[in-house]
Each structure stands twice: as C-alpha cells, then as structure tokens.
Design a protein around this nucleic acid. Structure first.
Lengths: 328, 328
DNA sequence: GGTTGATGTGTGAACGTGCACACATTGGCA
DNA sequence: TGCCAATGTGTGCACGTTCACACATCAACC
C-alpha cells in the first residue's frame, strides 16, 4: 500500500480511501487505480483482519464421524445452501471436519484465532466441547438441528422432526398397516430422538416398545441390522418406519432376502428424500427435508448476528412434505 | 500477551519464549503459565500470521458443479484422507467450494489474502482461472488428477487411469465378451479421457468408435442416457465398461428394463469401487480407487512444499486394483 | 583473573492495514 | 469581509504478535 501511495504521488490515507470509501478527487482516484494495477497490489488480509477484527469468513463445522460424513446426503446440500447465501454476502465459507480429539483442539484454536466471524454447526452432540467453546467465545453461530443441552443460547434452524415422523407414520396406518415397527437411529441427536417421539405419538395406544430397533447411525448397514432385529422379534410385521432413506434401503434388502414383498407384505417409509429414495426397488415413500433451504437459513441467521441486526425470529423451523412413492 | 507479561512480572519477550521455545528459567515459566491461565490468554492468530507470513491452514478446493459434489463418492474420501495428514501436521484444512464465477473471484481473494499456506485442488479443468492464479502466486499446491494444460508446473497425485481401464477391459475380453461398448464420461477431465484411452488400448484392432457413448458427468442419470444410446446402436452388445460405478448403476437399470440379464446376456464393469458397487443388483466388478490415500498423499505433497523440503518424487501415481464381483 | 560459552532476560522495530484527527482548499451566504 | 459546511488530503497511532539484538548472570577453564 505504501508503494502504491508512492507510485501515485499521494499518501497512504488517500489510497485507503479509494479502497474503502471516503472523499477522493477524480484525479487522485484514477492515479491510484493505475498505480494499483502497475504495482500489482493486493490487500493483506492478515493485517486487515488484525485491525478490523473481522475475517469475512464463516466456519461450517461438520461434527460427524468420518464414515457418516461420506454417507449423509443432507450435509452436502446444507453446505451448498449455506455457501450460496454467504457467497452473495461476500463471505467465504470454510468448512472444517471435526472428528477426533485432535481435531477438536485444533478447530478450537482456529475459532478463537479470529479466522472466522461466525460458525454454522451441523449435528453437534450434547455436551460437545466445541459447542461450549462457541458459547464461551460468544462467537456468532447457528446450529443445524440444535443439541439438546443448549435450547436457548444459540439460534438454530431445522425441521419439525416430531411432526414429520408423526405424519408419515399416520399415513402408514391409513393404508391399513397394523403391526408397525421402527428402525430408530442416532438417538443421541435431536433428529433421531424426535423422529422416535413422532412415531410414538402417531401410534398412541398401539405403540409397542418391542417393535423399536435402536441403531447408532443413519446408514445402510444399520438399516440391515435394524431390520433383522425387527423381523426376529415380530415376523408378522406389516409396516416399517426407517429413520432415514439409507436405513430404509438396508431394510429393504433384508426384507427381500427374507422373501417379503414390498409394498405387498410390508409397507416401508424413509426420511430425507435423498438420492436413495428414488433408486431403491421399489422407490421409497419418504419425508422431504429441505436441506438446501436449511443451509441458506442457517447462513442468514449467522450473518444477522455478525452484522448485529437482530433477526425477527431467533430460530427457524422449516416445513417438510411427504413424498408418496411405491414402497408404502 | 502484554497483560500476561505484566501479571507474571516479566517482559513480552519471555512470554513469547515460553510459547515458542527458547531459554526460559523454570520459575519464570511457571509464573507465566499461571498468568496465562489467569488472564485467559489466547494468541491472536491474525497478528501472528501478519508477522510470520504463515496461517497454518491449507485450502481444499473442490471445483465441482454443485450437483456433482453431492454425488461423487470419492471427493469426500479424498478430503478426509487429506484432513488426517494435515491434522497430524497441525495444519487446519479449510475446504472451499468453487462453482460460480462469483466463487472464483472470492476464492481468489481468499487465496491471495494469506488465509492459506497451500492448496489441494480437486478436479480442476483446463484453463481454469483459479489454476492460473495459483501458479501466478507460486502458492504451494497439489492437484488431485492434474489438468491437461499444466503437466509440470504443479505436482499432482492420482491413479493410472489408462492402465486401470485397460486392465478391467481386458478381463471383460477374457470372460468371452466380444461386442464391448463404453459409456465414457467427463472427457474434459484427465480421468475421463484417460479411461477412454485405456479402453481403446485394450481392444486394439477390435475397437469400434460407434460403441462409445459420450456423456458429460459421472453420475447415475448419465449412465441411463449412455446405456440407451449404446443399446440403440448395438442391440447385440455383450459387454459394457462404465466410466464410474454410478454410471454403471444407471446402465444396469436400463439393461434390466430392456430385459437383458447381467451377467448372463451382458457383462458390465464400473470404476471407483464406491458404495454403489456393492449395492447394485448384481454387485459390480470395478476398479478400486484408493481415494483416502490420494488425499493423504496430496496433503503430504503440499506440506513438503510449504516446508521447503523438496519431495523425492514431484508427482505420485497410486496403484489401483480390480475388484471382481458378479456383474462380469 | 580474564576469557569463553551457555543460559536467561528486556527492548525496539517491524508486519500492513484502518481510523481518528488535524489541516487545506473551495464555494456559498449573510 | 468573515464564517461555515462540504470536500479533499496527510500523519500518527494502534492492532498483537515475532524476531534480532543487546545485555546480564554464572560456571568452567587455562
């Protein structure tokens, strides 16, 4: 910047004003712009960050075990949705994978170090050290699917998992299924726990705890495991609510091996409306989750905090819709 | 830091030495450590970066159209592999999505701004502006699958696409297939073009250009399109090399609709050994691509450049293996 | 007892910006 | 003429570190 000022025959202050706005004469402006081009000047962001206490970057924290990150179809869409909004607002999205303890510590340093002005946190668990750190730092942040222990301190954006699960289970009932089981995954997250709650609400008196198979993750192989458990406990099962499409796909495979037809003998529904849903045989009835919009809303919520403009609603619940295909 | 020094009754220099190494007496060290804890001191990275001209961060640039980023099973694994190595080396991986022109410009500023010490670039195309920028900045970088126009300036890590495609096509020949077609995808990338080359080499004199269906992307829907073209051109087709597992999955669907049995009437092979391969009916024979190792090697190559220790080999080609399942 | 080397400590000058302030020049108006 | 507001420009300091250098102390050695 000093060189630019010298080349244009003005002071640093004037150069700064053409870059950041202020009173500048036309002659000075053209001279400086020429000098910038000639010198090949690019602002040094580290210096700018130092004095402005801003980085124009927002962290996207994916707190997933590695394996799941690869499988989860939502996380990518959420990420892209967030990037769209941040991009328009001229902020850089930087996504960080948090898995091991080593990651936690380093990401913590990264967040404290002023590399980002805010953070979007996907699938945090209860009592996560990163979560604690963010509240402690008062870093502008938004959760995607809030963790159970932080209901009010940080805004979140998500869907009504309880209601959606209730709705799709009810339609399973309406199509005449009577012995309905659930493969419940990821009960340590709000999404997993809420889907089970919705399932229970829909069944009411008919709810039978023995027809719930609990599995740790939302993936295909856990669908396989869960379905084996259910079939073992209740051979007469005629309906299944799988906590995700991937789980449903695994379940379908087991049903096929067991000689059950779908939707003839057993009706099955999933959750997510991911690419799985359209490619299983038969295609899955499922809950459409607006992943891209979730990302967009999360980004807006963070930006509002960064800018200091308080949003009207602190948290956002987006609508889902049921996609009715052939599996039930 | 000044506060810490005051609280411990020493100078900034001594505080700096306990943080970054140097001669410090035991008494001073304990006093400073106590002061750090009391004051709640965390180093300001912007200031540190400013003077050190280092950020301890490596950019991971995914230059994919949004849709593909979600579908590609390799990219996630490459990312995680890179993160492992960078994590151990105490560097932060920040991944940036580059899709629109707006992204390009902003990411360019990000790279120039000193936010990262190096970059890993996945699936760059020829004459990409970001690629040009990186060479221009002399930013330490590594390509995953080098773009055609930059053979020597920046190291890359990849697989031998030509050889792998040749090998798997040969085994298609060895199992007695005679009218073999290919669904060639993404010919604007080295990977896509090389796989076609390998296919041609394996067939030698028997190569028939009319049995190559060209499609733009490595995904399921392009597999559907490509297979329709092939069946239309050559109803007697008895072998197909699909440029990726997703493409093969789409092709399988079309074959099934057309009443062809696999592997009875038609043998089909894919590429990637992704999650698709194990879940199609029948499971796919395919080329295993060591995506995680690719990421690890890319990270090491970048770190070598950042540290100034020149690597023995500038670029790395990793071995693939053929996974023989039921589809051919 | 002076020289040497190892060990320990403090100080000032950068790094490249942004910002507050002081100052200069104009034109309009009473 | 004098005053004020609008427009333009330059200067010094601050942001929070790192690093080179100067300096202090102490033990060991010829």
């Amino acid at each position: 910047m000093h060189d630019v000022a010298a080349a244009a025959g003005v002071s640093r202050g004037t150069v700064n004003r053409v870059l950041n706005g202020g009173y500048v004469s036309a002659t000075a402006r053209t001279a400086i712009e020429a000098a910038i081009a000639k010198v090949g000047y690019v602002p040094n962001t580290a210096a700018r960050n130092l004095v402005r206490r801003r980085s124009q970057a927002i962290g996207f924290l994916a707190m997933e075990p590695h394996s799941l990150l690869l499988e989860d179809p939502n996380i990518g869409a959420i990420m892209l949705g967030a990037n769209e909004v941040l991009s328009v607002a001229d902020h850089q999205m930087v996504s960080l994978v948090v898995d091991s303890y080593r990651d936690t510590e380093r990401v913590g340093r990264y967040l404290r170090g002023g590399f980002v002005d805010g953070a979007i946190i996907v699938s945090a668990r209860a009592h996560d050290p990163i979560t604690r750190l963010i509240t402690q730092l008062r870093l502008p942040a938004t959760f995607v699917g809030h963790p159970p222990d932080l209901h009010h301190s940080i805004p979140f954006v998500g869907i009504d998992n309880v209601g959606s699960a209730r709705t799709i289970t009810q339609r399973l009932l309406q199509t005449g299924r009577r012995r309905i089981g659930m493969i419940a995954a990821a009960l340590d997250r709000d999404s997993g726990a809420d889907r089970l709650t919705g399932f229970r609400q829909a069944l009411g008196d008919r709810f039978d705890p023995s027809l719930v198979a609990e599995v740790p993750l939302y993936d295909y192989s856990n669908g396989v495991k869960g379905m084996r458990v259910l079939l073992d406990r209740e051979p007469l099962l005629d309906g299944v609510f799988a906590a995700s499409d991937a789980v449903a796909a695994g379940a379908l495979e087991v049903l096929r091996e067991a000689g059950r037809t779908v939707p003839g003998d057993v009706g099955i529904v999933g959750f997510d409306n991911s690419s799985w849903a359209m490619r299983t045989q038969p295609p899955l009835s499922t809950v459409h989750q607006p992943a891209r919009e979730i990302g967009q809303n999360a980004a807006e919520l963070v930006l509002n905090q960064v800018r200091g403009t308080e949003p009207a609603a602190r948290s956002i619940l987006l609508d889902t819709s049921v996609v009715w295909r052939d599996s039930a």
